[in-house]
Nucleic acid binder design. Structure first.
Length: 229
DNA sequence: ACCCAGGGTCATA
DNA sequence: TATGACCATGGG
């Protein structure tokens, strides 16, 4: 009965928030840029940086790679960590071009691509998996701080679990379906922004056992008494 | 004036 | 392997 908690929570999130239509971007390349820029950074700031790039007609791997570092840094400044991110974005662009863009990347296997992405400076597990899932539409589950926080507080995961352990927990309980993985991670982020911040906001949280007690009389299908936001 | 954000790298023990 | 410093902007 506990084996389906991953699936049940997904259904509940989907019923609560509806489809999230992630990743917000006009192209796979823009997804890759966003995945790098959003590292430990509010998405609003990322949008400003991407708007700057678009406004200068610079949202292009070739042009970013050829761009003077200082100029690129200025465009990316709103996204924070702009010096390291400018360097790392150019590295990612070089990788992108070396593989023949999306068409070239699409011919390679998930494992192969993941290994190569992780070898790039500035690309860790979450960034790599975000690119694989949302830019290349490959079925891999993206784990972030929110994922650990939510499922940790629900008592389903050890909050200190490694990235790989958390990823496995989901992937062994769900069918390897790209659309589901895309929707699930998006829903986790949407939910976390509302209810699962560092300072818990335990009010009418749709996942939280304690919050659900008073809301209505419907018997909660989620047993753990310890579950809270 | 603090805390936080859709992480990752590197140095140190 | 496991912490800790560091990176930097902008909103609450």
């Amino acid at each position: 009965m506990n084996a389906n908690r991953a699936r049940q929570t997904f259904e509940q999130l989907l019923a609560t928030y509806g489809p999230q239509a992630w990743w917000p971007a006009d192209s796979p390349f823009e997804v890759m840029v966003g995945a790098l820029l959003t590292q430990n950074t509010n998405w609003r700031n990322v949008e400003k940086a991407i708007a700057n790039l678009k406004g200068s007609d610079m949202l292009d791997a070739r042009r970013i790679l050829d761009c003077e570092r200082e100029r690129l840094e200025e465009l990316m400044r709103p996204a924070g960590f702009f010096r390291q991110k400018a360097e790392r974005l150019q590295i990612l662009c070089a990788f992108y071009l070396a593989h023949g863009g999306e068409a070239g990347l699409a011919k390679r296997s998930l494992k192969e691509l993941r290994h190569e992405l992780l070898a790039l400076k500035g690309v860790g597990p979450e960034t790599a998996d975000s690119i694989l899932l949302y830019a290349l539409h490959l079925p891999i589950f993206v784990v972030d701080a929110y994922t650990k926080r939510i499922f940790g507080r629900l008592g389903l995961l050890d909050e200190t679990a490694t990235y790989h352990a958390v990823q496995q927990w989901f992937e062994e309980k769900l069918e390897p379906d790209t659309e589901t993985f895309q929707e699930y991670h998006a829903l986790i982020v949407e939910h976390a922004k509302r209810f699962c911040r560092v300072k818990p906001l335990c009010t009418d949280c749709p996942l939280c056992h304690d919050c659900r007690q008073g809301s209505s009389g419907n018997p909660s299908p989620f047993p753990p008494e310890s579950a809270h936001c």
